[in-house]
């Protein structure tokens, strides 16, 4: 399937070049030549190889200004493919230890070329979200998750499944989400995702106080 790009009238380019308008418009596709320049500008280092610049379907179609909404059918395609790729734990147990989840939420290390590949990655949730009330150093790129479980009626099996899946692969639910696909891309392990699920849903977690 080929994506449909909005026709970009020349007049728009001129306006942008003049610095007058950076209104919502879909970016022109990265050409093979662009990609060559991009790839030639990096070198593999540590655990970060040049293959990290090979975009999958979601990355390719989500490389737009945040004001751009991609076509409905395309969004549906991305969500469907990502949803189908979610792997739930074989034992069906989706709730781990919220205390371990809190540590994962606080830690931002992992997968940078400067990181030791043997050190487990963090989830770095606080970089973008309010999570517990006690931690006042939180970012605002994502919505507040304070009282996440409480507001959703607690840790029902459906809510556990949804939350685990959402951490595993947010683009299964919202195409082009800013949030990393923690399970899909192997950032967090199965157990770590369980722990973060518990942080959000466990009635004893500081999130739900």
């Amino acid at each position: 399937m080929k994506p449909v790009y909005w026709a970009l009238p020349a007049v728009v380019s001129v306006l942008v070049a003049a610095g007058c308008a950076t209104g919502p418009r879909q970016m022109e596709a990265v050409t093979a030549e662009d990609l060559n320049i991009i790839k030639a500008s990096f070198r593999a280092q540590g655990q970060a190889g040049l293959d990290r610049l090979d975009q999958d379907d979601a990355q390719k179609h989500c490389s737009n200004p945040p004001t751009v909404t991609i076509a409905k059918e395309l969004a549906a395609r991305i969500e469907k493919a990502n949803f189908a790729a979610i792997k739930y734990p074989a034992d069906g147990n989706l709730m781990g230890d919220w205390r371990a989840g809190e540590r994962i939420a606080q830690t931002g290390v992992g997968m940078q070329f400067s990181d030791n590949p043997k050190t487990p990655s963090g989830g770095n949730c606080y970089a973008c979200h309010q999570v517990s009330k006690e931690e006042i150093s939180f970012g605002t790129i994502g919505p507040s998750l304070y009282n996440y479980g409480k507001l959703r009626g607690g840790a029902s099996p459906e809510m556990q499944r949804y939350t685990y899946g959402r951490i595993y692969n947010p683009q299964a639910f919202t195409a082009c989400s800013n949030m990393p696909r923690f399970g899909h891309n192997g950032i967090l392990t199965e157990q770590q995702i369980r722990d973060v699920t518990a942080l959000l849903l466990d009635p004893n977690s500081p999130v739900n106080q």
């Binding site: 970016m27 022109e28 990265v30 662009d34 320049i37 991009i38 970060a48 990290r52 610049l53 090979d54 975009q55 979601a58 990355q59 989500c62 490389s63 737009n64 200004p65 945040p66 997968m111 606080y126 970089a127 973008c128 150093s137 939180f138 970012g139 605002t140 790129i141 683009q171 800013n178 990393p180 696909r181 891309n185 192997g186 950032i187």
Partner: peptide
């Protein structure tokens, strides 16, 4: 090219420059 690259998502975290720098009044921590 710089503009395209600014929005170019890649890597295990799907990040681009625009993940953090394309909206007003956002923070990391």
């Amino acid at each position: 090219l710089g503009e395209k690259a600014f929005y170019f998502r890649g890597g295990p975290h799907d990040f681009s420059c625009s993940t953090c720098h394309a909206e007003d009044n956002k923070r990391i921590r």
